[in-house]
Design a protein around this nucleic acid. Sequence first.
DNA 1: AATATAAGGTGTAATATTTACACTAAGTAA
DNA 2: TTACTTAGTGTAAATATTACACCTTATATT
Lengths: 229, 229
Amino acid sequence: MNEVLPKFDSTFSIDCVVFGFDEGELKILLIERNEEPFKDWWALPGNIVGENESLDQSAGRILNELTGLSNIYMEQYYTFGDVNRHPQGRVVSIAYYALLRLGGDKAVKPISTYAKKANWIDVKDLPKLAFDHKKIFETGLEKIKRRIKHQPIAFELLPEKFTLTQLQNVYEVIGDKKLDKRNFRKKMLSFGILKDLEEKQQGVSFRAATLYKFDKRKYAKLFGKEISF
Amino acid sequence: MNEVLPKFDSTFSIDCVVFGFDEGELKILLIERNEEPFKDWWALPGNIVGENESLDQSAGRILNELTGLSNIYMEQYYTFGDVNRHPQGRVVSIAYYALLRLGGDKAVKPISTYAKKANWIDVKDLPKLAFDHKKIFETGLEKIKRRIKHQPIAFELLPEKFTLTQLQNVYEVIGDKKLDKRNFRKKMLSFGILKDLEEKQQGVSFRAATLYKFDKRKYAKLFGKEISF
DNA sequence: AATATAAGGTGTAATATTTACACTAAGTAA
DNA sequence: TTACTTAGTGTAAATATTACACCTTATATT
């Protein structure tokens, strides 16, 4: 930065790819737009960054307005800045993905005041999206596909207590590949980052599975050692 | 984006961490600032994004102005947007790392008109940096440390024709860890992405090593298979 | 021309990891 | 009691990783 700050018509926004996992399906939250441009189109939730907000704060706010939840797991992953990506002017958009637990106790219902309509939609069955949101989504999906191989993000998509089969399911759906049950369990348990809760699933037909939770402390101690799926 | 675009005093810039590798040392390009704020401090090369420039174009331009080179390997890796990161107003900065070949035929000399002074400085011996550039640098270094394990970016730091020892050196310096010569060669060659040029180094004292080049076509064919160091 | 020097280049055995594969156990529902 | 559905488990073969030391080759020196 070698000049005094020049100003021209430009601004920046956040767009969020909010992933949720439910019954073996990976979904994202889409909203139906109420305003031009792209009125009535489906779009990623997003908004302009406030004057006194950091990017992370802004993303957190958007997610909170949309879901009522705070402390959602969230990572910034790429910034989209093509000149003409927004028909009304230069808008650079910083993209975040968020991961959240759909299944389990409480289902997440998008808050209707945020947009005309908001729905969970299976990533395999997405409608056309406004702006360059298709590209933003695809980049985000690629990102979590890579990241799940080396970082413990799968747990963010599951309820706190989960079964090994559920966990395997997350890996299978995101990696788009069936995995061997015995090998999956052996490897996953070998990392030593799961805590056996010595507790069984409730309210299922048929044999109940053992519940586990992700052990953050033990994961932190791996420091440096790579986990790899 | 649900409103008409609001405007307030804000802008965005690009900052670049330009890595170069030479004789076993990993360096970055720093400039000495000529203006307030942080006059006379060392900083990452960067600039405001032009009105009609995409982010990638802007980063390319900055690197071209600085080095005279185009087609430098470059990746956007993170966007920094804390409210007070720039003392003169809200500036969101999109960070890129660039990798370039210092060694070999032609040394890269930073162009002096770009800044009062520009130097290659060993990453192990960096001065204090302006703004939040230390954090930007550290994030970038982390990024390439991770990325070099799974993507063929090491070659970008070497001349087109290189020896296996030089390549091993890149991995050792970036990974901050000595590697076994025989194992390194075995594994690297096993990927089948290096082309043996059947040609020897010139002008070295002592036994000349075989030269290789990175074979992009073969790498592209690996599609999906992961390379892993 | 003989010798010293410095880096290049190579193989193998021990260990660890990954893969492929199929049955029994447990709990629910009819 | 039986049928159904998912949970849970072990082993052998193949592959990948690690640890490790010496000879080769080209140049520089005497």
